[in-house]
Write a protein that binds this DNA or RNA. Structure first.
Length: 970
RNA sequence: GCCCCCGUAGACCAAUCGGCAGAGUCAGCGGACUCAAAAUCCGUACAGUGUGGGUUCGAAUCCCACCGGGGGCACCA
């Protein structure tokens, strides 16, 4: 590495004015300073005295980074450089570009560092941000620095708290299908326009009772719900933060389901809109699919099965009501409360006369004993174990339910393949049409009845449950028959019948759960919420009270100890305890809260949880628009200008949002939800935050392990054909593997090293030329020199390496050179906006190579060199500015017009056509570019080799593809 | 298990509508410069597109099956 850095610098024989790393660094510093002092990339908002920038606006955005202590590696800036190239190109084509970068700075690592060292997380965070800013600055990114924000800025999180209060102060009106202020709901209750869900009279309720009714409707609410408790982290986590195998995404610690009282966000109210509105945004299909899967909408029916000898009714959700006649048993989740209601004291006498199947009872003396035993087994298994062991287990509850379609008795089981968290936590089991039910029925000796006719060879070829389409069979009672109907018709028919009898109805189910929004951490936004210290007048649970806007921001208090109470990773019975709870001076305060009007001036206790890291990232793109606004989170006119819909049906939003696909569900779903709440409440004019989303690829890297499997420093590994693995480190063979760049794999390369060794422009060019923006690609330090050589050639075309003088001439370029230039312009102009930077670079290299060859002793025409410099400038802005200024232009080229291709110069004078005979290239002809199809055909048929091959016979077919080829079929 | 994406020279990557497999970079090879080396420059070889079928005058491109790699979901009724 070190030797490469030296070699790219100036050596003894190096000409004095060569474009070396040292010169590049000097140029880059100078232009970065210039851009900063001239405020080149600042962009103004429209205002009454300033109607708005002239060009059509473009709001360009990167997913903002978390400023980690490790700093940037060469993988991080890939997207940042890509958006910068696009932004610079758009500016040169007359667009008004808003591009800046902020920091997502709340979160665990700074807090964990604080716990270890006692340093305040703000200190660490600010130092990391400063380092990031310096690293980003040296890359020459054209950001409007005035608009940069950090989620940890008090000025920023004040508005995060304000938005929380908006959400807390809202409810979802199903009829209007939008959120409305909770005060309007209260008014409707008071006026009697809207009935209370449980039929009580609003005016007869006490104030705390009224408040609890309202709390039940709020979009942010406290709930005792099963949450993901991570003892090792000492905090609860959202569903999205838990991996499929039941561990924390951060740290990979065990997570347990526990009932705890926590803040939730009613994102489920928006499930339909979040799914449907994906149709209107320009996002990758993969991300849309992931969000749709996560929301998991499915159409089906809810059906009620009465329990024999009891008032209890088991309600099930099914997507296949057409198979109702095939139900042969039922299953409820082990945690389902109805289990305790329906289980009889003793095993029922078997209906058929023989003894109850031993497999059903698990050998227990009573149903209660069997259920208790099974619950214990289930609880002791982790989510991971449950998924690995997919053998069906369960136990009979002793209860029988009645199938509403035919009155058949169905034994009711508990089994952990039915989940409490989905649907109603109970199913009707149809083994004939569902593989899971088939498996369970096989284990427990339950009957199997087909109600959909499988194909003829289905069972012969080993088919078990048949889940495909087909005519219904065995499905009729005295009133309704499904037999012969297709699946969809059968569903409609049976649902209509169920509805008529009051036994069920069509419903829609979602996998999406409400969003767990509180964390037991220090380094996050405090909630603007308080609870009456003396409790509620009726002695019921405390009611959370929103603080008035005038009390914002609620500042994070200083504390001695930043750590939440954490526990052994597998201590499932531990309970969370927030670090803020220990800041007793901060927690207790006196106030006269408007949200608690009856109490008057009283003692309150603050909420001691903090918000999750997602809170700030849910709306930062709005603050970029108006970062200094003291009155509002964003001025409505400013929001409408940058984000507003541009045509009917357009959702509005950021014009291009670039980031990794890892946020496909979490961040992108949460921010869409917040944005829609703000839209419903009239605070923003756009109904979606991000009109277009683009997922950039990752820079990956090779890593090497020695014989013990330990990672060795990748930069010290050499290729060695004599080694069995092809690589050696200190002479010892090492194995190559491919993965993320990171400290643990010992393969980190930093942009700082690259800037030092080659300059930022070389680094930018290299990253952009290694592949299309959406592709992941391996990092290869030794390849960077190729980009550097190209920039040296460009430099040499303009500047004499010996004297430093300009080498360009005022000569007229020849026709070939003009065509080469205009082809390059044409290509680059279409490649850059498509973010096909790799091919744009190739076209620039081609042009530079043409010029080098055509003008080997200098004197390339200024009329070609200047467009070349402008074409290169978005990719290599420092070099672009430097050459532009040396060519005699005093103004920055950041807003110079991007060259346009002259179509007349794109066409060659003549075209060479390959002549295929029967698909094989046999000959070539050259015809004038103006030749028509008939001329080309005639010329091809007259060609000597063709005449010879045809031997006088008429060809069967002659295909002329204009500009491409001729194919003659004999 | 289900769904999605991707397989092109030694490596990274190009190839409008199906139309001559090659734009560019690295590495390789040969040469110029040099006492020599580095740097720089010039020149150059290299694959028939993962495999097997199909459609077509013509397939990297479209269709089917399989193999390999990556990602997502995963007992969601």
């Amino acid at each position: 590495m070190a030797s490469r850095a030296d070699s790219a610098g100036s050596g003894n024989g190096t000409p004095p004015y060569r474009y070396t790393a040292a010169l590049a660094n000097e140029i880059e510093r100078r232009w970065q300073d210039h851009w900063e002092s001239a405020d080149t990339f600042a962009v103004a908002n429209p205002s009454p005295d300033h109607p708005g920038p002239a060009g059509e606006k473009f709001y360009l955005m990167d997913m903002f980074p978390y400023p980690s202590g490790a700093g940037l590696h060469v993988g991080h800036p890939l997207g940042f450089i890509g958006t910068d190239v696009l932004g610079r190109f758009l500016r040169m084509t007359g667009r008004t570009v808003l591009h800046t970068m902020g920091f997502d700075a709340f979160g665990l690592p700074a807090e964990q560092y604080a716990v270890q060292t006692g340093t305040h997380p703000r200190t660490t965070t600010e130092a990391n941000i400063a380092r990031y800013r310096a690293q980003i600055r040296q890359l020459g990114l054209a950001h409007d620095q005035h608009r940069s924000v950090s989620t940890t800025d008090i000025d920023f999180y004040r508005w995060t708290q304000w938005i929380f209060l908006q959400i807390h102060g809202s409810w979802y009106d199903r009829e209007a299908d939008r959120a409305r202020p909770i005060t309007e709901l209260e008014e409707e209750f008071r006026a009697g326009i809207r009935a209370l869900p449980d039929g009580r009279d609003w005016t007869a309720l006490s104030r705390p009772e009224q408040d609890r009714v309202l709390d039940d409707h709020r979009l942010a609410y406290l709930a005792d719900a099963p949450v993901n408790w991570c003892p090792a982290l000492g905090t609860v986590l959202s569903n999205e933060e838990v991996t499929a195998d039941g561990r924390s995404e951060r740290g990979n610690f065990p997570v347990f389901r526990r009932n705890l009282r926590q803040w939730m966000m009613r994102i489920t109210a928006y499930a339909d809109r979040l799914a449907d509105d994906l149709d209107g945004v320009d996002w990758p299909d993969s991300v849309k699919t992931m969000q749709r899967n996560w929301i998991g909408r499915s159409q089906g029916a809810q059906v009620r099965f009465p329990v024999a000898g009891s008032d209890a009714v088991i309600e099930v959700f099914t997507t296949r009501p057409d198979t109702l006649f095939g139900a042969t048993y039922m299953v409820v989740a082990p945690e389902h409360p109805i289990v305790d209601v329906i289980a009889p004291d003793a095993w029922p006498s078997p209906r058929t006369g023989e003894d109850l199947d031993g497999r059903w009872t698990g050998g227990a003396a009573t149903p209660a004993e069997a259920i208790e035993g099974y619950r214990r087994v289930v609880a002791s298994r982790s989510d991971l174990e449950r998924q690995e062991a997919r053998d069906k287990t369960g136990v009979f509850t002793g209860a029988w339910a009645t199938n509403p379609v035919n009155g058949e008795p169905l034994p009711v089981f508990v089994a952990d393949y039915v989940l409490m968290g989905y649907g109603t936590g109970a199913i009707m089991a149809v083994p004939g049409q569902d593989q899971r039910d088939w498996d369970f029925a096989t284990v427990f000796g339950l009957p199997i009845r087909r109600t959909v006719q499988p194909p003829a060879d289905f069972e012969a070829s080993g088919g078990e449950a048949y889940v495909g389409a087909g005519p219904a069979i065995n499905s009729a009672n005295d009133e309704v028959s499904l037999n012969g109907l297709g699946v969809d018709e059968a569903k409609a028919a049976i649902v209509a019948w169920l509805v008529g009898r009051g036994d069920g109805e069509a419903v829609v189910q979602y996998k999406l759960r409400d969003w767990l929004f509180s964390r037991q951490r220090y380094w996050g936004e405090p909630f603007p919420i308080a609870y009456a210290a003396e409790g509620e007048s009726d002695g019921g649970p405390s009611i959370p009270r929103g603080l008035p806007d005038s009390d914002l921001p609620v500042l994070l208090p200083d504390v001695e100890d930043y750590a939440p109470k954490s526990f052994a990773p597998d201590d499932r019975d531990s309970s969370p305890e927030s670090p803020l709870a220990r800041a007793t001076e901060w927690v207790a305060f006196s106030a006269d809260l408007p949200s608690d009007p009856e109490r008057g001036f009283a003692e309150y206790l603050r909420e001691t949880n903090t918000m999750p890291q997602w809170a700030g990232s849910c709306w930062y793109y709005l603050r970029y628009l108006d970062p200094d606004n003291k009155e509002r989170f964003v001025d409505p006119d400013v929001e409408r200008y940058w984000l507003g819909p541009r045509s009917p049906g357009d959702p509005g939003g950021v014009d291009l949002y670039v980031g990794g696909v890892e946020h496909a569900v979490l961040h992108l779903l949460y921010s869409r939800f917040w944005h829609k709440v703000l839209f419903d409440l009239g605070h923003v004019s756009s109904s979606e935050p991000f009109r277009k989303l683009f997922n950039q690829g990752y820079v990956q890297a090779w890593a090497y392990t020695d014989a013990r499997g330990v990672y060795v420093p990748a930069e010290e590994v050499v290729e060695d054909a004599s080694s069995a693995t092809g690589f050696t480190w200190n002479g010892e063979p090492v194995c190559q593997e491919y993965g993320k760049m990171g400290k643990s794999l010992r393969n980190v390369v930093t942009p700082d090293e690259m800037c030092e060794a080659y300059g930022a422009d070389t680094f930018r060019l290299y990253e952009m030329s290694t592949g299309p923006m959406e592709a992941s690609r391996p990092w290869s330090t030794r390849d960077v020199v190729g980009s550097h050589r190209f920039l040296q050639r460009v430099w040499r075309l303009v500047i004499d390496e010996q004297t430093g003088a300009l080498r360009v001439s005022d000569a007229e370029p020849d026709r070939d050179t003009l065509t080469a230039l205009h082809k390059a312009i044409d290509g680059v102009r279409s490649d850059l906006p498509a973010m096909h930077y790799n091919t744009a670079v190739a076209k620039l290299i081609e042009l530079a190579n043409h010029l080098t060859k055509t003008y080997p002793n200098g004197g390339a025409p200024r009329s070609v060199i200047e467009p070349l410099v402008l074409l290169l400038a978005p990719l290599c802005p420092h070099l672009g500015e430097e050459l532009w200024s040396r060519l005699g232009h005093p103004e920055t080229l950041a807003y110079a017009p991007f060259p346009e291709a002259d179509p007349a110069l794109l066409v060659e004078d003549s075209v060479e056509y390959p002549i295929q005979v029967d698909g094989k290239v046999r000959s070539r002809i050259t015809v004038p570019a103006t030749a028509g199809e008939d001329d080309v055909r005639a010329a091809a048929l007259a060609e000597a080799k063709v005449v010879e091959l045809l031997a006088g016979a008429d060809p069967r077919k002659v295909i002329v593809v204009p500009g491409r080829l001729v194919n003659i079929v004999r």
